[in-house]
Design a protein around this nucleic acid. Structure first.
Lengths: 256, 256
DNA sequence: ATATCTTGATGAACGCCGTTCTCTTGCTGA
DNA sequence: TCAGCAAGAGAACGGCGTTCATCAAGATAT
């Protein structure tokens, strides 16, 4: 809420966390000076190596071989750092131009790209869920999604909810993917430090559902088959398709 | 790593966190002894008073006027405590008997009840999102939801995804509600300690969207109207309706 | 050339956290 | 009466986010 909405009427003395990397260093510096970018980069390294629960300011500082307090010259707080990471993820996101004829594919592309980005770093979905993407840098991406819905012809009430619905679905799906991955990883023991692939995940799910008593949970057991047959990508698309069909039903010229 | 694989072949001495409240105390005890229930209850008090970020074992112990270490006789860890809180929330949840004729209303009831429970304690959606409801106590509730979908006639692939989709939607929606509430609360300052009502939330959203530049975000601004006009309950139902329409499109005898 | 200012980074410190360990206390049953 | 026991207390460990006084060294001014 701070900078974007309120504005800063008084002549702004540059807060330490807002200053840019100084332009000096005419000659090559012995060690590259700190910067917001380098801190975010290091944070991603720690995140991928150790996970969100172990991501601390101290670990990030250690990764940069720097004192913890030095970070606070570029970053307001840990939460600020997480928000920078979240924002940075959006940087690799290409916005589609709304085209009423192809709104379904555009939403599909949007969702798949976003999921792909979330999967590119460990626990990223957890970070994503913790932030409403309503900061100044992220608004264009929300706007673009809503543009697709509105130019497709959806009523405003529906388009507004559809944005939330799709975003929530993506985050939630990837979040759950991550949980199954962690489960599979810890069941495999410390031997497999690499992230488990889909096969291991499916095995873990299979084992779990197979262990349920048949008479108490007939539906869960019956559906476990579908969950293992389908890959994560297929399951993701199925959920999207459900939403898209729901949305299409609000279109005036709906197809069968 | 070694314990998990090895199992525990020796006759298990009851772990301290598994023991029941001792039956003694024939006469009324000066102070009621500790128990898992009392701890969970105190945790809810702290949660509602201070929020999830401030919910610590120490605060819970203080609420019970007890040493921190005493808690660990009944609870394995803080995460275990959170899971107990989550499970306990489900206790007030009544399960519907699947009825193919009324599957839509049943899903609506299910979702509304669950949202209502999530709203009954501060930050509960955050706790909910952090746990897949696949513990033994919670499985019946998942099973019941899937039962509704399957007896309604949905294909297995769809029913399986629908379960995730609906659950994710509920959690995500309430999560976002909480974020707007927090925003409104902190904007109102420390004066209003009570949780902000819907009117304040809507005002906060209204202000936010009105502050956006018209030319850059025409769709966001256009849709902000819908978000303020509709109450949270109405918006929740709209999202549900989108999903339900999508699901209905997979039914053999689908209505127009 | 010398003195002053500025700035990026340091290291210690504060208060809080989850968790574990040892010790006390007061009751139970023989 | 007294050993045994279990519930709870208290201190301690290592880690956390954050702040603050300090420092070293380059830039600037005299």
């Amino acid at each position: 809420m701070s900078d974007a909405a309120a504005g800063t009427p008084e002549s702004p003395p540059p807060s330490p966390w807002e200053r840019e990397r100084p332009v000096r260093a005419r000659v090559a510096p012995a060690r590259e000076p700190l910067s917001r970018e380098r801190i975010v980069e290091a944070a991603f390294v720690v995140l991928d190596r150790s996970g969100l629960d172990k991501l601390s300011m101290r670990q990030v500082a250690a990764e940069l071989e720097v004192a913890v307090s030095a970070l606070y010259a570029y970053v307001r707080s840990k939460d600020d750092l997480l928000e920078l990471m979240y924002t940075r993820l959006f940087a690799d996101f290409t916005l589609p131009e709304p085209d009423p004829e192809r709104w379904r594919e555009q939403v599909l592309d949007y969702a798949r790209s976003w999921r792909w980005l979330l999967l590119s770093h460990r626990d990223m979905a957890r970070i994503s869920m913790a932030h409403v993407p309503f900061t100044a840098e992220l608004l264009p991406y929300v706007e673009a999604l809503l543009a697709i819905f509105r130019t497709a012809g959806l009523p405003d009430r529906i388009a507004a909810e559809a944005g939330d619905l799709i975003s929530t679905y993506i985050d939630g799906f990837v979040l759950e993917e991550g949980m199954w991955q962690d489960r599979a990883a810890e069941q495999a023991g410390s031997g497999s430090l690499a992230r488990p692939d889909w096969r291991e995940m499916a095995d873990e799910m299979q084992n779990y559902f197979a262990s349920l008593p048949e008479e108490d949970f007939p539906h869960l057991r019956a559906l476990s088959g579908s969950m293992v047959t389908e890959s994560s990508d297929e399951r993701f698309d199925i959920g999207l398709e459900i939403i898209l069909r729901g949305l299409a039903s609000y279109l005036p010229d709906r197809e069968a």
